[in-house]
């Protein structure tokens, strides 16, 4: 009896599918080259840029990806050329930080809890200061710790996607495919409005937004800063985000910090959210989700001036909270390459 009640309560908790990382080989190539040619033993944290996009296939989630361009260019003259590798619709930039150590011991000795907390604190401060409203990608900050073993061309690394914890957790009031939640007329106009948003240079890589629906079912997608204007117009407002997750019953990780932001910024206890997903590069409301989350308005959380706790270390491929490792000897080791070429 007790356990079934516990199960019931557990089912009500809104559960978020963790972000998944993916590192392009090119990232390690450039990091190695940076280490060898520029950084040397300097192990200061390096600002990096991750890229992600809404889920674009019903069978797989999208990843947060690191590419060669995620790292600063090696030579300073390259930074003078126009930034042509910035975001596009398939590569929304997300700010991150890389702690690359010089030794395996150094890697193991990193205080990972503190590093996660430090990154979460930036997110929290950007929420409080309003920076996150101007640049919503700040809500997605991530960090990577790594050790690049350039003798053996192997790379140990570990991602964290800091998520501020709501305590008590948000609960699910309602969650269903967007195509069922909207009226037929709204489905059409939401689809059109989202495709427009995604096709405009100025908004295509903005991962958090508002879906504003007027009483006559006219739909516009707006920037977060326009929330009050939408409300003044008496429109129904959904909080939308590019959802990398493909699962039918869970929103993806980016909604976590977004909920905190919404709660802090507008003191909403009921939040209608829109997990925006695509098919073949276009808005796909069958796969997208609309839900309503209930955020408990305890005195404690309302007066929260202190930073909430954060979680977010990625599991490795064995499902453990432990680093991943990849060997690139095959494509990077000069000896091996020479043999292969012979």
């Amino acid at each position: 009896m007790l356990s079934s009640m516990a199960d019931q309560v557990k089912e009500l908790i809104l559960q978020f599918a963790p972000f998944q990382s993916s590192v392009d080989e090119g990232f390690w190539h450039r990091l190695s080259s940076l280490k060898l040619n520029k950084l040397g033993i300097d192990d200061s944290p390096i600002p990096i840029t991750g890229f992600y996009a809404p889920c674009s296939h019903r069978q797989v989630s999208n990843h947060l990806t690191l590419l060669a361009e995620s790292l600063p260019p090696e030579s300073s003259e390259q930074s003078l050329t126009p930034a042509i590798s910035r975001g596009n619709r398939n590569r929304c930039p997300v700010p991150g930080i890389l702690y690359n150590t010089n030794t395996l011991e150094g890697f193991q000795a990193l205080d990972k809890q503190s590093l996660l907390k430090a990154e979460a604190k930036k997110i929290w401060e950007d929420i409080l200061s309003g920076e996150a409203e101007k640049d919503s990608s700040l809500l997605l900050r991530f960090l990577v710790v790594s050790f690049a073993d350039l003798k053996n061309w192997s790379f140990h690394y570990w991602f964290a996607f800091p998520a501020l914890i709501l305590d008590p957790p948000a609960t699910v009031v309602d969650l269903k495919p967007a195509a069922q939640w909207f009226s037929a007329q709204e489905v059409e106009s939401v689809t059109t409005a989202c495709n427009e948003w995604r096709s405009m240079c100025s908004s295509t890589d903005v991962p958090f937004f508002l879906v504003s629906i007027s009483s006559n079912s006219a739909v516009t997608v707006r920037h977060l800063a326009e929330f009050e204007a939408c409300q003044r117009d008496g429109n129904k407002v959904l909080f939308g985000f590019y959802d990398p997750c493909h699962l039918p019953n869970n929103p993806g990780w980016p909604l976590r910090n977004f909920l905190w932001f919404i709660f802090r910024r507008w003191s909403l206890q009921k939040v209608q959210f829109f997990c925006y997903r695509e098919n073949r590069g276009f808005a796909y409301l069958e796969l997208s989700l609309v839900g309503e989350a209930s955020i408990s308005n305890s005195q404690e959380s309302r007066d929260h001036q202190n930073m909430p706790n954060a979680v977010g270390w990625e599991l490795n491929n064995r499902g453990k909270k432990a680093p991943r490792c990849i060997s690139l000897a095959k494509t990077m080791d000069p000896t091996r390459l020479a043999i292969a070429a012979a």
């Binding site: 557990k10 976590r256 599991l315 909270k321």
Partner: peptide, 18 residues
């Protein structure tokens, strides 16, 4: 490291294999 994150709002991935 004590990186146990018992967070009920994290969807558990129950099927991770190498």
């Amino acid at each position: 490291d004590n990186l146990v994150e018992n967070d009920p709002a994290t969807l558990q991935t129950t099927y991770l294999v190498a």
